[in-house]
């Protein structure tokens, strides 16, 4: 009887100990277990800041385990973050604002990329690349425009510019989804699309494949028709952000460290580019960094005025409430 009672107490103790092993505090502690932060983004220039923070050990210093998953378009990212499968995602503000307008809850941490787009056309179309904006876009009437995914940030931006050029985006052009940089390259070089919304990774891939293109419109930097445009912002799942404020601020601090290293440490940029597969090797990544670094170095700051400016690229010019949807103090943490 006594032996049975001792056995029973031992069994209960083991059970409690086992159960409590999963009750560790959510925030990581230095030297202890890291707190996992799941991230979803496209493996391209927009993820450079996260890459710099990870490569430089900023996340680990904050007790965070940065766990990235790479997607092919903003639509997948948005669904992943809103659905709660990922804590943080990197997505275009135009797409995010429209989703918020539709009732989605999201918390913006900070902008992660300035304008880095361009519109490139097949050379055999012989479009005049010297025409100024918006006249240059009138040449696109009747052409097929490739975007990563239908309805996502790239399409929303081009739609706005086409409207400013006096074209009807619904009837004057044909839209085609061309997917990731690899499939976009195939669609462009095989002639399935006439014009494609370009970005660093795609242009690098096209050059590597020996494919030529005409740049109809440069949309990189803040002195382009896009102005103080954010190509991507870090956005957190509401439930996660609201229930883990300490982890969020640690994440913000680490991410800001990553961006600071991109600006101040000459070696950080090429390493981060290599992390997101821009450049086949360290030398090439270093060379590409010098050419394409500005969108992740000179990002228009997170101000209420710049926040409102992004609504220009949404279908209904909708601006979500700044104080409700932006995590206060994150951008400067």
């Amino acid at each position: 009887m006594r032996i049975e009672a001792v056995g029973c107490v031992a069994a209960v103790t083991i059970l409690v100990a086992t159960a409590c092993s999963g009750c560790a505090p959510a925030t990581g502690s230095p030297g202890g277990e890291l707190t996992k932060v799941s991230f979803i983004g496209v493996q391209e220039q927009g993820a450079t800041g996260y890459a710099a923070a990870d490569v430089g050990g900023a996340f680990a210093e904050q007790g965070l385990d940065f766990a990235p998953t790479w997607a092919t378009s903003g639509s997948v990212i948005l669904q992943g973050v809103v659905g709660g499968d990922f804590d943080v995602g990197n997505v275009g503000p135009a797409q995010l604002y429209t989703a918020i307008e539709n009732g989605v809850c999201a918390r913006v941490l900070r902008p992660t990329e300035g304008a880095a787009y361009g519109l490139i056309a097949r050379p055999d179309l012989h479009l005049d690349v010297h025409r100024p904006f918006p006249d240059t876009l009138r040449q696109l009437k009747g052409l097929r425009i490739g975007v990563a995914a239908r309805g996502a940030a790239q399409e929303l931006v081009v739609r706005t510019l086409l409207k400013e050029a006096g074209l009807d985006p619904n009837t004057d052009v044909t839209w085609l989804a061309v997917g990731s940089p690899a499939t976009a390259l195939a669609a462009f070089t095989s002639g399935q699309v006439d014009v494609v919304m370009s970005y660093t990774q795609l242009e690098v891939n096209l050059r590597a494949a020996g494919a030529s293109f005409d740049k109809v419109l440069v949309l990189s930097g803040s002195d382009t028709p896009l102005g103080v445009f954010w190509q991507a912002v870090a956005v957190a799942n509401c439930a996660w952000a609201d229930s883990h404020p300490d982890t969020v601020m640690k994440f913000c601090h680490a991410l800001n460290q990553g961006f600071a290293s991109l600006a101040n440490d000459r070696a950080a940029g090429p390493k981060a580019f290599a992390y997101v597969n821009i450049g086949a090797n360290a030398d090439e990544a270093a060379s590409l960094w010098e050419t394409y670094k500005s969108p992740v170095i000179d990002i228009p700051p997170l101000t209420e005025q710049n926040w409102r400016y992004q609504s220009r690229f949404t279908p209904n010019n909708y601006t979500p409430d700044f104080s409700r949807h932006v995590v206060a103090g994150c951008a400067t943490a």
Binding site: V82, A149, R150, G151, E155, W175
Partner: peptide
């Protein structure tokens, strides 16, 4: 190039 499927994808992208 056209069709209801393309519209569905476009609207799904912004969770409309």
């Amino acid at each position: 190039q056209s069709g209801v499927g393309q519209l569905i994808v476009s609207y799904s992208a912004t969770l409309s």
